[in-house]
Design a protein around this nucleic acid. Structure first.
Length: 804
DNA sequence: AGCACGCCGACT
DNA sequence: GTCGGCGTGCTC
C-alpha cells in the first residue's frame, strides 16, 4: 500500500482535465495535505508544472510507474474540501477546465510564474560554443518561441545529444509582506548606564536608547523609523549592541487604513423588519432558502443586509455580501466597515494583487467574518457561512464574460446549499429570471415598497428628441434639459448627466461619399478620441491618426458624428462657460483610484455637473443632486439583444433614483428617440410591476428566458468559412441529442462578426428540458480540442447575458 | 502547453 | 538516401 496524491495540473486542455496520480516522496509524507499547491514533473520532458492536490488515496502497489511530487508550494492548504468540490461542479456547469476554475477562485498570486533556463550538462561542451547560438545573457530567461528557426533547431539538436538541458522552473508569486519587528532588550535601569557609555553628540542613538527603555511592547521597524526619524543604520547599531532584537514578521497590506466611525443599527420600518425576520429565521433554522428582496431606491435594503449579517455574526457565523464592482465605492465600504469594523474583508479589483492576497489570507485565517466584494468574492475562502447577500442582483457584471463563464448567483446558490444558509438577492429592479422564480415560489419575495424618508420619487420628464431636432435644437441637448441645467447652476445645485454607453460614439464619416473609418482588424467603426487626437478601436485597441481628407474619395468634407462623453463635455462647456464639469468614463477612470477621486470631488462640490457613462448610475448618493439628465436613453434599445428593454428600464430607473434623495425634490429629464417605448414609459413612473408583466409577455412570445434556458456556442477563426463550417458541424452533431421542443437559432455570424481579425459564428439553443444536452455539449467540447490546433476556437456559454 | 513520433516533400 | 516540415497523440 502506498499513498497516492491526486493532482490537477496547470495544463488547461480538455485531455488533462482530470486528476493525475503522483507518488508522495517520504520526506513530504507528513507535510503534504489535500488542498496544497505542488510542483510536479509532467510530460515527456518532465517539465515542472504547478498542480493542486485534490485528494490523497491509499493504493495497492501502483500498476504503472508513477512519478513523484517534486515539491510543495504551500505550508498549509490553500483550498478546503468545499472549494475543491465547488471547482469541480463549476468546471462541469460552465464547460471549462477544473484548473481554470481553481485559478479563478484563488487570488492571482496563486498562479505560478513559469520560467525556462538553458543549462549545459555535458562538461566537454564549451560555453563559448553555446554562446555562438544564443548569447549567454539570454540563457536564464530562455524563451524558445522568440528565437529564430535556426536557433531553435540548433538548440534542439544539442538537446538530443544531451549536451544541454532546459530547466523548467515554477515560481510561487504568493509572497507575504515581511517587515522587521523590534523588541526592546533594555529597561529603565539600564538606560543611564548605556547613555553614559555613549558620546554626548550621539543624539540619535541616545534617543533610541531612551525610547527602548520605555517601550515594552514590540514595535514595527517602519513605525519606529518614522517616530524617531532614525534610519535603518541606527537601528542596526542598536541590534549589534544588544539593545534590541529584530525579528521578521508577516504583515498585511491594509488598503483601508483610515479609522472607521462606528455606526449603530438604524431603526427599521415595518416592512424592513418583516423582511429581516424572514431572513434571520432562515439563518437560525439553517435553511438554504433564496430570498428576493425587492425594494425601490432608498427603501433601506442595505440596512436590512447589515442587520441580517449582524444576526449571522451573533450566531457565530460568517457572511458574504456581493456588490457590483462599480458600486463598491468608499461610501459603501465605509458603511459596512462602520458597522462591523475589523471583521470585514474587502475584495475588489482596485486592490493590488498583494493586497488581495492579504485580504484573502485574513479571511482564510478566520480573522475576518464578513466578506464584501465584487463577483469573484463569492469564492472567498470563508467557512461556516450564515448568510449570502447579492446586492443589485440584476447587474450583468455578476456573470463573468470569459472562461469560466460563471454567474455569481449560481455559485452563491451552491454555497448556500453547502452551508444550509439563506441567500438574499436584492434589487429595485430584479432580473426577470429572479422575479419569475419568486412568482413560482422558488424564491421567497420580500418587498420594500416605500422610501424610508417618505420622499416622493422624482418628477420624470420624457423629451422626444425627434421633435426637438425638428425645431432646430442641438443634437445632444434639448431645450428643456438646457433650461433645467441652467436653473441648477443659478441655484448652486448639482446635476448628473448620463450618456448611455461609452462613446457610442464619435465616429467620423465623409459627407461626400459616406465613407466611415473602420478598424482594419474588427468589423466596427473607429471611435474618435480627442484626448489622444486619434481614432481608436474599442475592441482590439487599434489606434491611428485622425484623417483630414477622406481616404476613399479624397474629399475634405470629413465630419464627426455621434456623441462621445468628451464631445458632450466640450459642448456643455460652450453652453455654460462658467460651469465646472467633471467627466467620468472609462478614459478618465483608467488609473487606479481615479474613480474615487472624481466622486469625492463631486461630493465636495468641486463641480456643478457630473457627466459620465453608466458607471455614474450605480449606488452613488449625493444629497445635493436635484437634476439627472439622460442624454440618449435608447442606444441600448437598438442593440440586437433580448435583454435590451430590461437593461434600459433598469438603467433609467436607477439613474432616476439618483435625483433628490435628500430634502430637495428631484427632477429627471430623459431624452429619447423612442418616447413611446414601454421600457422608457414605465421607467418614467418607476413601475417595475407593469414592466415585469409586459416584458414577461414579450419573452413568452419570443421564447426567451426566463421561459426558456439558453446555451450559446461560438466558433472563431481567421477565415470566415472555417468558423461557419465548424458551427454547422457542431449543430449536426448536437441535433440527435435534442428533443423536438428545443429551438436552434443559427448558425449565424455574430452581430459584430469580426473582432481582432477573427470571424465569429454562433448558434443559440433555447430549451426547456434537455437531459442529454449537457453531456452532448461536453463531448463536443472535448472533440473540439483537435480543431483548436487548426485555429478554431470554440466557446460555450450557458445562460449567456445576451446573444451578441 | 510542450514534447515525441511519424509520415510526406526537397535537398546535400 | 536524409533533413526537417507539421499533423497527431499523450502527458500520472
Amino acid at each position: 500500500m502506498v499513498q497516492i496524491a491526486k493532482v490537477i495540473v496547470d495544463v488547461p486542455t480538455m485531455q488533462t482535465n482530470s486528476a493525475y496520480s503522483y507518488l508522495i516522496p517520504t520526506p513530504l509524507e507528513n507535510e503534504l495535505k489535500i488542498g496544497m499547491r505542488v510542483v510536479v514533473p509532467f510530460g515527456n520532458g518532465n517539465r515542472k508544472v504547478q498542480g493542486f492536490v485534490v485528494a490523497v488515496e491509499m493504493q495497492v502497489a501502483p500498476i504503472q510507474q508513477l512519478k513523484e511530487i517534486d515539491s510543495l508550494m504551500d505550508l498549509e492548504p490553500v483550498l478546503n474540501q468545499e472549494l475543491i468540490q465547488l471547482s469541480k461542479w463549476l468546471a462541469s456547469s460552465t464547460f471549462s477546465f477544473q484548473i481554470t476554475c481553481l485559478l479563478t477562485m484563488l487570488p492571482n498570486v496563486m498562479r505560478a510564474k513559469y520560467s525556462k533556463q538553458l543549462k549545459i550538462v555535458d562538461k566537454n561542451y564549451q560555453r563559448q560554443d553555446l554562446a555562438k547560438i544564443l548569447p549567454e545573457s539570454a540563457w536564464s530567461t530562455f524563451e524558445p518561441d522568440q528565437l529564430s528557426k535556426e536557433q531553435q533547431s540548433e538548440l534542439s539538436k544539442l538537446r538530443e545529444q544531451n549536451k544541454i538541458e532546459i530547466v523548467y522552473q515554477v515560481k510561487n508569486q504568493a509572497q507575504a509582506r515581511q517587515i522587521f519587528q523590534i523588541t526592546s532588550q533594555i529597561d529603565a535601569e539600564e538606560e543611564t548606564e548605556i547613555l553614559n557609555s555613549l558620546r554626548k553628540n550621539a543624539t540619535k542613538l541616545r534617543e533610541l536608547v531612551h525610547f527602548l527603555a520605555e517601550q515594552k511592547d514590540p514595535i514595527n521597524q517602519p513605525v519606529l523609523e518614522k517616530k524617531l526619524s532614525v534610519t535603518v543604520g541606527t537601528i542596526k547599531i542598536g541590534e549589534a549592541k544588544g539593545w534590541l532584537k529584530r525579528k521578521k514578521v508577516e504583515q498585511y497590506r491594509d488598503p483601508y487604513k483610515e479609522k472607521q466611525v462606528q455606526t449603530k443599527p438604524l431603526h427599521l420600518n415595518g416592512e424592513q423588519q418583516t423582511a429581516l425576520t424572514s431572513i434571520t429565521t432562515s439563518i437560525k433554522n439553517r435553511l438554504a432558502q433564496t430570498f428576493l428582496l425587492e425594494g425601490v431606491t432608498g427603501s433601506g435594503k442595505t440596512e436590512v443586509y447589515l442587520q441580517a449579517i449582524a444576526y449571522a455574526l451573533a450566531q457565530g457565523k460568517t457572511a458574504i455580501m456581493l456588490v457590483p464592482e462599480i458600486a463598491l465605492t468608499p461610501q459603501m465600504v465605509t458603511r459596512v466597515k462602520g458597522r462591523f469594523g475589523k471583521q470585514v474583508a474587502v475584495l475588489h479589483s482596485g486592490l493590488s494583487d498583494g493586497e488581495k492576497f492579504d485580504e484573502w489570507r485574513r479571511i482564510k485565517r478566520h480573522e475576518a467574518q464578513v466578506v464584501v466584494g465584487a463577483r469573484s468574492a463569492i469564492f472567498a475562502p470563508i467557512e461556516n457561512v450564515g448568510v449570502i447577500i447579492i446586492d443589485e442582483e440584476h447587474e450583468t457584471s455578476y456573470k463573468q464574460d470569459d472562461t469560466p463563464r460563471y454567474h455569481a448567483r449560481d455559485v452563491a446558490k451552491w454555497r448556500s446549499k453547502f452551508y444550509n444558509c439563506p441567500l438574499v438577492l436584492g434589487s429595485a429592479t430584479p432580473s426577470l429570471e429572479s422575479r419569475a422564480r419568486s412568482e413560482r415560489h422558488v424564491y421567497q419575495l420580500l418587498k420594500l415598497p416605500d422610501r424610508i424618508n417618505g420622499h416622493p420619487l422624482p418628477k420624470v420628464k420624457i423629451i422626444d428628441m425627434r421633435e426637438e431636432l425638428q425645431s432646430g435644437a442641438d443634437q445632444n441637448f434639448s431645450t428643456p434639459l438646457l433650461t433645467a441645467i441652467n436653473q441648477r447652476l443659478q441655484t448652486k445645485q448639482q446635476s448628473i448627466l448620463m450618456l448611455n454607453r461609452r462613446g457610442y460614439s464619435s465616429f467620423i464619416m465623409c459627407r461626400d461619399c459616406g465613407f466611415v473609418l473602420k478598424c482594419p482588424n474588427c468589423d466596427i467603426s473607429l471611435t474618435l478620441h480627442m484626448d489622444s487626437h486619434s481614432m481608436k478601436c474599442h475592441y482590439c485597441g487599434h489606434e491611428e491618426p485622425i484623417p483630414q481628407i477622406c481616404p476613399n474619395c479624397h474629399s475634405r468634407k470629413i465630419r464627426y458624428y455621434g456623441t462621445g462623453t468628451e464631445k458632450v463635455q466640450q459642448e456643455l462647456q460652450t453652453q455654460f462657460p462658467n460651469a465646472r464639469i467633471l467627466r467620468m468614463d472609462v478614459d478618465t477612470t483608467r488609473r487606479k483610484g481615479a474613480h474615487e477621486r472624481i466622486l469625492r470631488q463631486f461630493g465636495n462640490h468641486q463641480a456643478d455637473i457630473l457627466l459620465g457613462t453608466q458607471m455614474i448610475a450605480k449606488g452613488l448618493d449625493f444629497p445635493d443632486v436635484t437634476l439627472v439628465g439622460v442624454l440618449n436613453a435608447d442606444t441600448a434599445l437598438e442593440l440586437p439583444d433580448f435583454r435590451a428593454s430590461e437593461r434600459t428600464f433598469q438603467l433609467l430607473t436607477q439613474v432616476s433614483g439618483r435625483a433628490g434623495r435628500a430634502e430637495k425634490l428631484g427632477e429627471v429629464v430623459i431624452q429619447t428617440f423612442n418616447p413611446d417605448h414601454y421600457a422608457i414609459q414605465l421607467a418614467k413612473t418607476q413601475n417595475y410591476e407593469n414592466f415585469f408583466r409586459k416584458e414577461m409577455y414579450i419573452r413568452h412570445q419570443g421564447k426567451y428566458p426566463p421561459y426558456y434556458f439558453t446555451l450559446q456556442i461560438t466558433a472563431a477563426h481567421k477565415e470566415e468559412k472555417m468558423a461557419a463550417a465548424k458551427m454547422y458541424e457542431v449543430l449536426n452533431e448536437l441535433r440527435p441529442y435534442l428533443s423536438g421542443t428545443a429551438i436552434v437559432l443559427g448558425p449565424t455570424p455574430k452581430p459584430i462578426a469580426r473582432i481582432k481579425d477573427k470571424y465569429y459564428y454562433q448558434i443559440v439553443i433555447k430549451y426547456k428540458n434537455e437531459p442529454k444536452l449537457h453531456a452532448a455539449v461536453t463531448k463536443i467540447l472535448q472533440e473540439s480540442q483537435s480543431d483548436y490546433r487548426k485555429g478554431v476556437q470554440l466557446a460555450i456559454d450557458a445562460q449567456p447575458q445576451s446573444f451578441m
